[in-house]
Design a protein around this nucleic acid. Structure first.
Lengths: 208, 208, 208, 208
DNA sequence: GCGTAACCGAGACGGTACGTCACGTCTTACT
DNA sequence: AGTAAGACGTGACGTACCGTCTCGGTTACGC
């Protein structure tokens, strides 16, 4: 259970942070394709070898930066306040905020790269895609258990596709923003879509 | 004001097709990032300069290949058979088939590149994203005009986001296929979402 | 017997000369160890790949530069004027001049590298070491045939070792110059060493 | 005025020997150019910093290893047995043995490096080149004083160049070994070359 | 029917980022 | 204070592709 005997000069946390920050900054400024290990190292004021020592590719750097952002947001993904609609909206809000922090560029670039990189794909799934998806499913499933929602007409998975799909579509196509208003509209649309008898009950939140 | 007098050897259509085909094939096989002008030229059995003469970047090559595919599909985007639900499903079917032909890889790669390339972004919008989106809106708007659907609860734009967003989400994340079944389920879900009084009427197609 | 159909852009003789010249110049200025492909390319105003395209290592560059120098000197190695002593002296003169042109640095560096590189060693032997050695042997052998010299006491090979060994020793150790005076003294010493009856006859050239 | 008070852990003689031995071994195995401080430290089982603490460059390591070898041979360079020819041969024998111990590679590599490193050049002169040269001159000068040899025709310096030059030439070019037989032949050739009246007297050792 | 102009293939050119290696320095814990 | 370990910033290595250029050779007009 003991740790490996720490020998030699310890890793510089300063360098690690500088690299991750520089990677996000450059990806935001110049785009994913223009992102370069050489450029990251230079912008971070760090030797090129220091980047290669800890990350095999620029994808790995971005992935770790992404992971850091996720962790910093904390685990408040499925709050369970008892109000299903509010919970859905909170979850979408935090997810959209994360996407905006990365300007989407990093996220879209990573996903494009993951098309042909199974390992990267799996890590992205495990880090962000999967957990968010599971969290939304949990919140909706709670609504079903309470009898507020029904998964008979539209399966919950498809409902989750609607929510996150809309986010990704807008990130990619940029025809509309991914903001709090979208979170509100999406929450209501999901509520209507999954209402048991029909979407009339969704009015309950519009009518005081 | 006539055309410029055509002088010299005319452009080789053979070379053009070979380049476009090779680009799609390589992008499918190795991924967008691994795609290379040199590689395209070699695979097409064509001189490198011949590619550069007609296309400035690999994005331009893919875009033209994409445009060819779209044109080959013909303009049967918004059929207007009188059956709104069937029209929606047909539109989604053809769109999904196009996406599958490109394996998504090319599409996702292009979109990633377009994040920081306004011109490419505009061309993609004009070629595929926009027309499909407009076509779906038209079909839905016809339903609204017929009184079958209502855009009061959920705006048609958001409904379009749902449909294409789900497609993109699955292309990117690959957690589920983009097939005919999805087109069917999506059509029904949109119908239910946009039903005027509520989603009960959607049952009309389930009931024989 | 036909040549390979020369296709594509032909090799630039300008670049070739620039590389060879820069290599010699830099080796002279900074020494063999400090010589760098990158440095050569930069000094020659040439892309790095252009060097790698034609020469695998910096040794190959220097070797070709050396070969050029040798060819430029022409084949007047074993002149056979009838005067053995003069011929020896001429041969040593041209050889010493070649060594001085390379400042010895390139030559010594190449030989050091050849210690563990059989191929380089063979090429050096074939290009400079071997031919000069053979030429000196021929000149001396002519002297023996004329009866002016004898190889009974001291074999001609050892005499050649004396001459070229002295040159190398001085190049390496730099305790004395490798100049025309050395060529003169060496010629006389060889004459004396190989004189048939004894070295008295060598005086014939000192006496008018 | 005594020594500085030795404080802290004393230098490890084990590490020093390990470094010197490893340097010679690696230089012999892989050649001078491939010799690396990192490699030496690893082969010696020693920290890299330990090498840098005591030697500034790999040349310094080799030079000290060389110095150790010379000291181990002892100072029996100019034995003065009364027999000049035997003394010359003994001196050449011990010198050739030293060169063989280093396989020449280290020696040639060091000399190549010394072409542009005045300090290294000076140290090499002082450690090996100079002393051997002086010793040979002394032995020959004794022969001149005894009347056995003459420096009128051929100066003793040039004679020394012949002997050591031949050794270096063969070390570098490897066209012939540097062995005891060469020492014997060289001694006789020098005797003949420096014989006062002529080389006939040299026969005295061939005739029993 | 023959020049001429633009195409085609090939491939060398000057660049730049790649990922690796060794450099020489530094910062640890241990002896 | 010396030692083994190993991370640090630096820079050359040899490779791949970039986008441009320069060849010889190939069409299809227009005089």
């Amino acid at each position: 259970m003991a740790e490996t005997a720490a020998r030699g000069r310890p890793r510089s946390e300063t360098a690690r942070r500088a690299v991750l920050d520089a990677a996000l900054r450059l990806c935001q400024r110049d785009g994913y394709q223009a992102l370069t290990i050489k450029g990251i190292a230079h912008a971070a004021g760090v030797g090129r070898q220091t980047v290669y020592r800890w990350w095999p590719t620029k994808e790995a750097v971005l992935l770790e930066a992404l992971r850091d952002l996720v962790h910093r947001q904390g685990a408040r993904l499925a709050p369970d306040t008892g109000d299903t609609l509010a919970d859905v909206r909170t979850l979408l809000d935090t997810t959209f905020r994360l996407a905006r922090e990365l300007t989407g560029h990093a996220l879209v670039g990573l996903m494009a790269q993951a098309q042909h990189d199974g390992q990267l794909s799996a890590r992205l799934q495990g880090t962000v895609i999967g957990p968010r998806r599971a969290a939304l499913r949990d919140v909706l499933a709670r609504g079903v258990r309470r009898g507020e929602l029904s998964d008979e007409e539209v399966p919950l998975d498809l409902a989750a596709d609607f929510a996150f799909g809309t986010m990704w579509y807008r990130l990619i196509s940029q025809h509309a923003p991914v903001d709090d208003d979208l979170a509100a509209r999406l929450s209501l649309a999901l509520w209507r879509l999954l209402s048991p008898g029909g979407p009339h009950q969704a009015e309950r939140c519009a009518a005081p």
